[in-house]
Design a protein around this nucleic acid. Structure first.
Lengths: 237, 237
DNA sequence: CTCTGTGAAGTCATTCACAGCG
DNA sequence: CGCTGTGAATGACTTCACAGAG
């Protein structure tokens, strides 16, 4: 453990490792080497060892890592041992789809409120879980009352910056934004944007250039066995 | 124009520039300098000049770039001057939310089919646009008949790899995956994964470490005016 | 004088390669 | 032996800094 600054690329990969370890644990596998783990998502084994090395020495030389133990370590590192409470702003298609999304649960996130500015929607309950839709102007109070610590922005781009300001004013420190807009968060607030427009346009770029089979440089296909096209561009999710 | 390999980071930024140029054009602004553009998303102006430099010389020294002209260039570079036809596999919450999503339209993408394996859903029409839900086993035929060139995977993680195999077998070369799974695409197929789990867990990591106000190194806050927390981690969307 | 285009420098990330533990 | 942990080497991306066009 050497208290360096950790890159987000590293934390993203930790998520991936954790997911894999959960599967391995469920399959009853007890230990795994960095090499074997790396092969799961064609990644360099040194990368995995380095990533883990930022947080401690979890492995046993000659053996590898104990699956269950490492699983618990990463869970703790990622702060997934405590539940996070999520408020979704925007009760449109996307907002309600997210409210119904099971993936939240599996990472110990719980959606506890929706917000909207549409009078028709306010006061209703939505989705399987019957999550209440609140007036967006009441964010501050609901955040306090429900202990919300993560906001999800699912409103049109033009409203997104205003919503971000509102939720940060309410004390939220972590925001996942789906609006295709470049937002500015004040210092101390973690903003992650999932921008479908960018993703799509990047696919379009690729389609416009069939010759570039893989965008990244082709010369680096060295002696090593031909990799499947580089897994998920780089886990930027 | 020097036919180098272009990083995906560059193409992602081109999307962002384009979005901004569209706004500027709509506002009747005629020219913009790399500096002014850079300030919109606190980014270094040299970055923008470099990004554009890969594709040609679009600027005029002493002036900057002509908004309308640059807009058209980038549109062309990203292949957004031709319409792409999208098939969404998985007609659940997310799939139908995406089918209703307007953002596709704005980037010249058109959702023309949904696919599912649930007999209840197959044959129905979904959402405002009334998009037909087909049997997923008929992907190959529908792809051909409707000229689909982009697939969106919106199925549970355990089914995702199989679906990816099906759509690539049908000749699709560009896939946007929403399943939280590490997929392997065969060479020549561009796969982009939008992984909510990773995004959420990365927020969780941040929340677990309030001291790390911004994860990335704090020392580099140089003489330059304090930036708002680095815009959107790095446009990985 | 302003602003582009671009080599050169700097910073950050990944991979190599190996000492050394179990 | 095999496999971790980690400096050193490589590679990728960003920023600097400036020559030169307009």
């Amino acid at each position: 453990m050497k208290s360096e600054k950790i890159s987000e690329l590293t934390t993203n990969r930790l998520s991936v490792y954790l997911r894999c370890l959960n599967t391995l644990a469920a399959a009853g596998i007890k230990t795994i080497s960095s090499r074997a783990l790396a092969e799961q998502f064609n990644l360099n084994s040194a990368q995995i060892r380095k990533d883990l090395g930022y947080f401690g020495e979890f492995g046993l030389r000659g053996v590898g890592y104990f699956v269950e133990e490492l699983r618990q370590h990463i869970t703790k590192i990622l702060g997934l041992d405590t539940t996070h409470r999520v408020g979704i702003i925007g009760a449109g298609n996307l907002g309600t789809a997210l409210a119904n999304y099971n993936g939240f649960r599996e990472s110990n996130f719980e959606v506890v409120a929706l917000f909207d500015n549409d009078k028709e929607k306010i006061g209703r309950r939505v989705g399987r879980a019957g999550i209440m839709v609140y007036d967006v102007r009441k964010v501050e109070r609901v955040v306090r009352e429900k202990g919300i610590d993560v906001a999800v922005i699912a409103v049109p781009a033009r409203a997104a910056q205003k919503v971000l300001n509102q939720v940060t004013a309410a004390g939220i420190k972590a925001v996942l934004n789906f609006a295709p807009a470049t937002l500015r968060a004040r210092h101390g607030v973690k903003l992650k944007t999932v921008d479908l427009t960018i993703s799509l346009e990047s696919l379009s770029y690729f389609l416009a250039r069939p010759q570039n089979a893989s965008i990244t440089n082709p010369r680096s296909r060295s002696k090593r066995a031909v990799r499947a096209s580089r897994v998920d561009e780089r886990l930027n999710g």
